[in-house]
Amino acid sequence: MSAPHAAAPAAPAVPELFRGLFDDAAVFPPGNLPVAEAVPAHRAHRSAWYADAVGPFLCGAGRLGEAAAAVAGPGPRLRVGLVLPGGSAELGPALAAAEPFEVAGVELATRDAREAVAALDLLLPPTVPAAVELPRELLRGDGLDEVLDVLVDSPYRAKFRTGGVVAGAFPDEDELAGFLTGCAQRGLPYKCTAGLHHAVRYTDPATGFEHHGFLNVLLAATETDRKAAAEVLAERSGEVLAAAVHELTDRQITVIRNSFTAFGTCSIAEPLDDLAALGLLTPPAASPTP
């Protein structure tokens, strides 16, 4: 009598391509969830079946006190990503105020990449990752190459803003492609923030804003040719993008996620629902997305 076949190991609930991709930016526009509500919601995300897809809780330095009050009592330390729009002057005080938390990263906005790198080198513990964001107007023309060259010689990622609350906050395909290919050519990792509300590129019917899709960005992450990257970013067919994801090899997925490490989203539910609708994520039975 032959031995019974061993059961095949269950596939992970969250595919590798999407693990840790969604940083929780619930307290930022346009979500603007009160911190007192956002912290328990984040903890619920971190204990749900899709927890592997969820990154840290993003919080500005000025709201760390609210976050500390929201986590008072027993429970694991909250993993916080510090978002510092005020530049290097905020770094030291924010790190001190974040003592009650596990600091999972720092996102530092600046107008001077070299100055930001110097401040991070001086003050940031070497185990804490950081991303440096410059205004998009400084990344046009030769400015992009100059900034990326500074960052590629540092331990820090680039950060690029892909949307906001006004039309001008959304870069077009060519501008975003320039950033992506500049990073790909240098092997420089990056994160994105704002505007990536859905998996596939779309026009918001209420605002008319042109939103990039996070699947588009993932699939464009390894392109070194600007025109080719822009074509991927312009794709509006979910079926086309889902088919391209299914064709990715394990090595390609590793390269993509070493490049595009995460993005901030004010909703964890929307990207999960989109992936499920495209057949790229399968929730366990009787386990709906949030």
Rank of each mutant, 00 (worst) to 15 (best):
T193F: 04
Y190H: 02
D273K: 11
A6F: 08
R257M: 08
L120W: 04
E175C: 05
G164K: 00
A98Q: 04
D172H: 11
R79K: 13
T181F: 02
P15A: 07
A68P: 01
G75W: 07
P15M: 04
F179R: 05
G164R: 06
A41S: 09
D24Q: 01
V166R: 14
G86E: 10
P284K: 05
A242I: 07
P4C: 10
H45C: 09
R114P: 08
H246N: 14
E66A: 12
H198N: 12
A67R: 00
G163K: 00
R157D: 10
T181Q: 09
G60L: 12
P126I: 02
G55R: 07
L122M: 08
C192A: 14
G195I: 04
A36S: 13
E239N: 13
P56L: 06
V240P: 00
A97E: 08
A48E: 07
A51S: 15
E210K: 09
P30I: 12
Q252F: 04
A48P: 05
T193V: 13
T162P: 00
A116N: 03
A13E: 12
P129D: 10
Y202M: 11
E247Q: 15
R251G: 13
D121N: 13
P155C: 07
G60C: 12
N32Y: 03
T254E: 14
P125K: 05
R136V: 03
G105I: 01
L21I: 05
D172A: 10
N32A: 09
L272M: 10
G141S: 12
D153S: 15
L215E: 01
H197K: 05
A10Y: 03
P34H: 08
A276W: 05
A221G: 09
I268G: 06
S88C: 11
A269C: 00
T207R: 12
L21G: 03
A67C: 09
A104H: 06
D149V: 10
H197R: 12
V128N: 01
P171C: 09
G81C: 12
G168M: 07
D121I: 06
R140K: 14
L176G: 07
F170L: 11
G182D: 02
L176H: 06
C266M: 06
V117S: 06
E37H: 10
C192G: 02
P12L: 06
G163T: 07
C183W: 00
A244V: 08
